[in-house]
């Protein structure tokens, strides 16, 4: 008798999302297993960010199933979702610009409680300063004074401060120069090597395909194609999936 498949870390089941009368997602279903990197691809307005926001509990009204570690997320506040193990690095980074880098990181640790929390926080700060040089060199500077690439590093580090099981990355390369994009994706690759489970929304298809284990293409709020990067990488098929011409 074969062992039962482990429960996926995240299960999205026939999820619909609405902004008022506008339907942003249509019966989206996907799952993410521990340690996987899943990329969400699609044109602007396809529903990628809506899905991210639905997972963290802000934004659209949703119906359908959304489970983390088997636990239904309906009715769970965004704050509680963070404490349950989801962290978002939002599009545009949204750092607390007039707070120092270190304070941005420490706010990301707000849910940490109990014995050993303080020493764990210190340990995490040390680890993240190893991973992100900007944190080492400029921790007292205001986050808003950093360059886009540095801000992205701080945003990722802030999300990691909550020790998430699932990291959501929404357009991490947006607005960054090609060299800086490389640095950001090196960081994501490092996190992948360390076993971090990630859901990645990215316009840079080549970078996303290079790092993901599996991909889904969204068009008009619907998943139009799913598969491994090899399966999905065919240019023509990808283009047609982007515009919703192909059903998964």
């Amino acid at each position: 008798m074969s062992a039962a498949a482990p429960t996926p870390l995240l299960e999205v089941e026939r999820l619909d999302a609405f902004y008022g009368a506008i339907r942003a997602l249509r019966e989206v279903s996907l799952s993410i297993r521990r340690g996987e990197v899943v990329a969400l691809l699609g044109a602007n307005g396809a529903g990628k960010t809506s899905l991210m926001r639905a997972i963290v509990g802000v934004g659209p009204q949703v119906s359908g199933g959304l489970r983390l570690n088997g636990r239904e997320l309906a009715g769970v506040t965004p704050e509680q979702r963070v404490r349950s193990g989801v962290a978002l690095v939002p599009e545009g980074r949204h750092l607390f610009g007039s707070m120092s880098i270190e304070d941005n990181l420490l706010v990301g640790r707000v849910g940490a409680r109990g014995r050993g929390a303080r020493s764990r926080t210190a340990g995490l700060l040390r680890e993240l300063k190893e991973l992100f040089p900007v944190l080492r060199e400029r921790s007292g500077r205001l986050a808003g004074s950093l360059s886009g690439g540095q801000q992205q590093q701080v945003a990722i580090a802030r999300a990691l401060m909550s020790e998430p099981e699932l990291l959501l990355l929404d357009e991490p390369s947006l607005g960054l120069s090609p060299q800086v994009v490389d640095v950001v994706f090196e960081t994501i690759a490092t996190l992948r090597e360390r076993g971090m489970t990630m859901l990645l929304v990215e316009q840079d298809v080549a970078e996303a395909l290079a790092i993901a284990d599996r991909c889904h293409v969204l068009a008009s709020g619907r998943i139009t194609r799913s598969g491994t990067p090899e399966e999905i990488g065919d240019h023509e098929q990808l283009v047609s999936a982007y515009f919703g011409a192909e059903e998964s």
């Binding site: 962290a87 706010v107 909550s162």
Partner: peptide
């Protein structure tokens, strides 16, 4: 203090504060 930082974060960006776990 963590509470103080949380108040400041909620004042700067209410939604983002919630998304890092602050009970805004």
């Amino acid at each position: 203090s963590m509470l103080g930082r949380s108040v400041r974060a909620a004042g700067i960006d209410f939604e983002m504060a919630r998304l890092v776990g602050v009970r805004a």
